[in-house]
Simulated assay, not measured.
Amino acid sequence: MAPPPPSPASGAQYAHQFLNTALSQRGPSALPYAEDVKWLIRNHLVALADAFPSLHPKAALFTHNDGRAAHLLQADGTIPIHHAGASYNLPAVLWLPEPYPRSPPLVFLSPTRDMVIKPHHPLVDRSGLVANAPYLRSWVFPSSNLVDLVRSLSHLFGLDPPLFTRSPQAQAPAPSPPILATPPPRTHPSSPSPYRFPASPQLAARPPPTEDPAEVFKRNAIAKLVDMAYADAATLRPAREAEVDTLFAMQATLRNRGEVISDGVHKIGEEKEALERRLQDVMMATDVMEAWVMENRKGAVAASNTEADEAIETADVLSKQMLECTAADLALEDTIYALDKAIQEGSVPFDGYLRSVRALAREQFFQRVLSTKVNKAQQQAQVARMAARVPQYAS
C-alpha cells in the first residue's frame, strides 16, 4: 500500500528529513553530486517544497541519451497554473542532473493517459521536455534556483497551457515519437504512485472564445517584457559566471593563505615558549652566580683581616668536620713517620715504639672511617642542592 502524500504543512519537514538522509549517503549509494554543492541542492529542494507543496523531492533512476543510468534527485508533482480565470495543475518532474546546480535542471511534463501535449508549443517539445524556457536558457550559478524556475513556468504555462485533456467526443491526435530521450519511468510503474494529484486542465480542443483586445494586448506586452528580461539575463550570464569563478578562485587562494598564516603563528608561539623557558634558565643561573660571587667576595674581605690559620673558612659543618678529620689523619701519619725515623736511629726503645705505633694506627683508622662517612654525607648534600637549583615548570 502506497504511503499517503505529505500534507502541505509537513511538505518542508518531509523534504528536510528525506534530503538529509539522501545527501549524507557515502560509498556506492552516494548520489553523484559534488560535495561542495550538496548543501545548496538541499536548500533548493527544501525551498521548492515550502513554496510549492505539490512538488516533493525523490530519488529515482534516470537514463541519459547515451544509455547511462544514474540515481538522481527529482521534484515530482504538479505545477499550478492560472488560465482563463481557473486554476489547474500540470503533472511535471524536475530532474537534477549530475552537474546541478552549475547546470540547469531537466524539466519534463508527464501527461496522464487522457492528456495530450499541445503540438508546436513554444516551450515544450513532443517528448514533454521543457527545452525552450527563458529561465532555463539564462540559468546562472549560483543565483538561479528551482523556486524562481517553477514560478516562471507557472506564469508562462498560464499564458499558453502545454497540456490538453482529450475531448470525449473527438479523438485527439496522438503525439509524434519523441525526438529527445524521454524521462525514465517513475519508480515501479506497475505500482501506484505514492502521491496523487488533482486533475489536469479540461481545455476543449476548439478555438478559444473571443477575448477583450485590451487583455490580449496586456498579456502580449507582459510576455514580451518577460522575454526581454530573460534575454538581458542571458546576455549578462557569461560576465557573471566569469566573475563568480574569479571570486571562487580568490576565496580558495585566501583560504590557503589563511592556513599558511595559522601554521606560522602556531610555530612562532612554540618558539616564543621555548625562548621564555630558556630565558628563565639563564636568569636563575645568573642569580646563583651572583649569590656565589657575593658570598665569596665577603669571605675574601674577611680573610684579608685574619691570621693565616684563619684564612680558610668552611662552608658548613660537614666541611669543617672533613677538614678536622683530614688534618688529624695527616698529623698521625707524620707522627708515625717520625717514630720510624727515631727507631732507625735508636732514639726510642723497640717495645715503646710498638706500643706508640699501635695506638697511633688505631686512632688513624678511626679518623679515616669518619672521613669516609663525612664524604658520603657531603655528596648527598651536594646532590640535594643541585636538584633544588633545577627550575620547575608547570605542566
Rank of each mutant, 00 (worst) to 15 (best):
A172C: 00
S176W: 11
P178D: 00
L180W: 09
P183K: 04
P184M: 13
R186N: 02
T187Y: 03
S190Y: 02
S193A: 12
Y195C: 10
R196H: 07
P198G: 03
A199V: 10
A199T: 12
P201Y: 04
L203D: 09
A204Y: 04
A204K: 05
R206A: 05
P207R: 12
P208C: 03
P209T: 02
E211S: 10
A214R: 11
V216N: 06
F217S: 03
R219K: 04
A221S: 02
I222V: 11
I222M: 02
A223K: 08
M228L: 14
A229Q: 09
L236N: 08
L236A: 12
L236W: 02
A242F: 02
A242N: 01
V244D: 07
T246C: 02
M250H: 00
Q251V: 11
A252G: 01
T253G: 09
T253F: 07
N256V: 03
N256E: 15
R257K: 07
I261G: 01
I268K: 13
I268W: 13
G269Q: 12
E270L: 11
E271T: 07
K272F: 12
K272V: 14
E273F: 10
A274L: 09
E276A: 15
R277C: 11
R277L: 14
Q280C: 05
Q280H: 10
V282M: 10
M283T: 12
M283C: 06
M283E: 15
M283Y: 08
M284K: 07
T286K: 15
V288Y: 13
E290S: 09
E290H: 06
W292I: 08
W292V: 09
M294I: 07
E295I: 02
N296L: 06
R297V: 01
A300Q: 07
V301N: 00
A302F: 10
A302M: 10
A303D: 05
